[in-house]
Amino acid sequence: MATVSMTVNGKSVSADVEPRTLLVEFIRQNLHLTGTHVGCDTSQCGACVVHVDGRSVKSCTMLAMQADGAAVTTVEGLATNGKMHPIQKAFNEHHGLQCGFCTPGMLMSAIDLIKRHPNPSEETIRHELEGNICRCTGYQNIVKAVKAAAQEMGG
């Protein structure tokens, strides 16, 4: 066992984990933050995307120990004081989700892409979200939502 400590959604957390524990396992099982999902076992689907020190990361592809000392944000950390993040509002407004399973990862990836491309074209959005699989929406409304959120966020 090894001790890991990090900040998750602004709170300091610490736990003893097996060295092989993945970041997503730490988040879901140790912290019981179940908004971060696991949809595959090959780092393809993107349901587990979180932010580590401000960058989007597939948390199934990182050991918890690699995030030792980092600041992690999960989907639960997006709304502040009950106020929804623009990306959350945009997904609701543009019907960018159906079953909701891919949504947390999709939101986290979208925020990162907007940060890097403040005024993204449709092509950029589609390319950037290539690592997040959605089986429900056909992506059209997700693209719309990301575009709207980018504008709202001042792109």
């Binding site: 933050l33 179940t34 929804m84 997904f91």
Partner: peptide
Amino acid sequence: RRKEDRRFTTGKGRYTD
């Protein structure tokens, strides 16, 4: 606009796992 979106966009969905 959908009622269910609030829990799904805030990570409060409750799936079996």
